[in-house]
Each structure stands twice: as C-alpha cells, then as structure tokens.
Design a binder for these strands. Structure first.
Length: 169
DNA sequence: CGGATTTGACCAGCGC
DNA sequence: GCGCTGGTCAAATCCG
C-alpha cells in the first residue's frame, strides 16, 4: 500500500522515458503536431494518428476491436479515427473521435492541454473504471475518455472527442 | 482564494 | 414497459 502512493511520483510524462517509451512517443507526436502545425486544423480534418499506427475501426458495440488481442509486441501503439456515423442519411454532430492506445502505467497523459476530470464510471466490459476529462479552456468543448485495457492493464486507451480551437499554450 | 478533484445521483438512449 | 449502460452535471472537499 505504501508503494501505491509513491508510484504517483512518477506520473509525469517526461519522467517515464525509460519504461514508457511508447507513451513518450505519443507525447512527442502531439507536441510536434502543435509546434509544427499550430494545432489540429478545422473540424474538417482529423488529426492523423501516429504515422506508424494504423487507424482501427471501433465496432461501436463494446470492446476495442483487436486492441487487446494485438498484444504480440508488434503494435504497441495504435490509433483509431472514426467519425460519428448515422444509419440515416445526414449527420448533425459530426464530432471526430480519435482513439489511441498507449502503454503507460499512469492514465494522466500530458498532451499539452489542460484537462479537468468531470466523471468516473465503471464499465461492464472492463474491470477498471473509465475516466471522463474535459478541456478547461473556455470555448473548447473537447472531451477525452481514458480507460485501461481490459486484458492489458499496462495499456491505456485514450479517446479524444472533438477538436481544440486554441493553442496548447 | 482559486482551481481541481471526488463521488453520487440523474437523465437519456437502446434492447428485450 | 422495464431494465441496463453510458454519459453528464452538481455539490462538497482538498491542495497549492
């Protein structure tokens, strides 16, 4: 129990560079995106996932596809981009949804933005709770969902919903 | 003092 | 029609 709290000391993204290299890669990628291209373009364009990551499709039913089954060691980090699809013909709220699977011991991944936790829920498909974060910037309605992998607690699945309309600052 | 975090309760949508 | 799950909001609390 005592060590449980100590682990928090290393919840800094920059700290986990020795073990969480994949995680670090994600952070680096986000930072590059912000520094090289100010930020994600308009909502018309979806932030391209990792160049090496393959956009996976979310079955939209429950599990995250082959995320957990891909524990072969080849794909450490994967991203999924999927806009809200409506069975009808038109969609009003075409909020882009991007999901990333990162290997990290902590769920607090610093991507350059400030997030405020606004809810926690226990999902049935996962023995771990799901955390809901929201951008603290006024005017930015970007939401983030963070949950641990069901079969690989060492993996964290982060789902971004929406696009930031402001610099990381 | 301000901001962030926490937990619980409420609501909405969907399935059966 | 009822039950269940997921998602969001609000109030209270704690930390810096």
């Amino acid at each position: 129990m005592s060590s449980d709290k100590n682990k928090k000391a290393a919840d800094s993204p920059e700290n986990g560079d020795s073990t969480n290299q994949w995680f670090f890669e994600l952070s680096d990628y986000l930072k590059l995106n912000d520094d090289d291209d100010d930020q994600w373009p308009d909502d018309d364009n979806v932030p391209p996932p990792l160049p090496e990551a393959e956009p996976l499709f979310f079955p939209n039913t429950n599990e995250v596809g082959d995320f957990g089954a891909s524990g072969s060691g080849s794909n450490h980090l994967q991203g999924s981009s999927n806009a809200r699809e409506v069975s009808g013909s038109e969609k009003k709220d075409v909020r882009e949804r991007v999901a990333f699977k990162t290997k990290s011991e902590v769920e607090i991944i610093d991507d350059g933005y400030r997030w405020r936790k606004y809810g926690k829920k226990m999902v049935k498909n996962s023995p771990n709770p799901r955390n809901y974060y929201r951008c603290t910037v006024d005017g930015c309605r970007v939401k983030k969902r963070v949950e641990r992998d069901r079969e690989d607690p060492t993996y964290v699945i982060t789902t971004y919903e929406g696009n930031h309309t402001h610099p990381t600052s």
